[in-house]
Computed example of a mutant assay.
Amino acid sequence: MSQEVHPDEPEADDDAERAPFRRYLTRTGAERMHRELVHLLNEERPKVTAEVSAAAAQGDRSENAEYIYGKKRLREIDRRLRFLQKRLDTATIVTPAEQSDRSRIYFGATVSLEDEDGALSTYQIVGSDEIDASGGRISVESPMGRALLRKTVGDSVEVRRPRGEIELTVVDIRYE
């Protein structure tokens, strides 16, 4: 199955007003989120539930710090579980290697760029839930991500950063 992903089309659901982009996840990002969901559900939540039960058995809950902290932690876990489940249920999962048009930059592309000083940097264009600047994953919604969309090898883009504008030239595009 070939995919061309164009993440600048408006969403069709109620979240369209808040998020001008569809929610995309790479296959790797979706698997990472699923592993976190399973870990929280099968390991972390049962452990904290047992700790809260043990703390509740100690008596007065109003001054029981372990009970109060445990309940707070359970709420945090439940909130994260709901968030992960909703993201995984509503996201469009993209496998970058299946991209049919490999001459242009689309969601999931790994892009090598050269700056004005000749320094090379490599980034993968990913969804907002997957960003990791130190790992070279930037959001498709970021200024750089948006500037790079649909560019080809040899194209130059100007990106506005907090330290000022920088001109980047696309050196390589890969879909892995």
Rank of each mutant, 00 (worst) to 15 (best):
T152R: 12
E167N: 13
I105A: 04
A56M: 02
R45S: 10
I68K: 05
R35P: 00
F83H: 13
D60W: 02
R61T: 14
Y175A: 11
R27H: 06
S103C: 05
N64S: 05
A97R: 14
E31C: 02
I105D: 01
A56R: 09
P143V: 00
G164Q: 00
D129K: 03
K86G: 04
V157N: 02
E51T: 05
D14P: 00
K86T: 14
E36S: 12
S134D: 14
V126Y: 09
N42H: 13
E31W: 06
K72I: 11
E9Y: 14
R79Y: 12
S128I: 10
V153I: 12
V38Y: 02
K47T: 14
P20I: 02
R174C: 13
E63L: 10
R32T: 12
P143R: 05
A16Q: 11
R104D: 06
L41C: 12
V126G: 02
F83R: 12
K72V: 03
A57D: 14
L148E: 04
M1S: 14
V94Q: 05
D155E: 04
A55C: 05
V140Q: 02
R146K: 12
R27D: 07
R23V: 13
E9P: 00
A109S: 14
V5Y: 02
E158P: 01
D172M: 13
E165Q: 12
K86L: 09
G108F: 06
V111G: 01
R174Q: 15
I166W: 01
A97P: 02
S121T: 15
M33I: 11
E98N: 14
R161C: 05
E4W: 11
E114D: 01
R32L: 05
A50H: 04
T122H: 09
E167H: 10
D132V: 08
A54I: 07
S139L: 01
D155Q: 08
A119E: 15
V52G: 01
V159I: 15
G135C: 05
R61F: 01
D78E: 10
A147N: 01
R22Y: 06
L84T: 07
E165V: 14
E165N: 15
L81F: 05
E17I: 08
E31P: 00
R73N: 09
L81W: 02
Y67C: 01
R137H: 07
L74E: 01
R174Y: 11
D78L: 06
R161L: 15
V111S: 05
L81N: 00
Q58T: 08
R82H: 11
Q85E: 15
L168T: 11
R104E: 04
R87W: 07
L84P: 03
A54G: 07
S112M: 14
E141P: 00
T110F: 02
M1P: 10
I125S: 02
A65N: 09
A19P: 00
L37D: 04
E158V: 15
G70Y: 00
G164N: 03
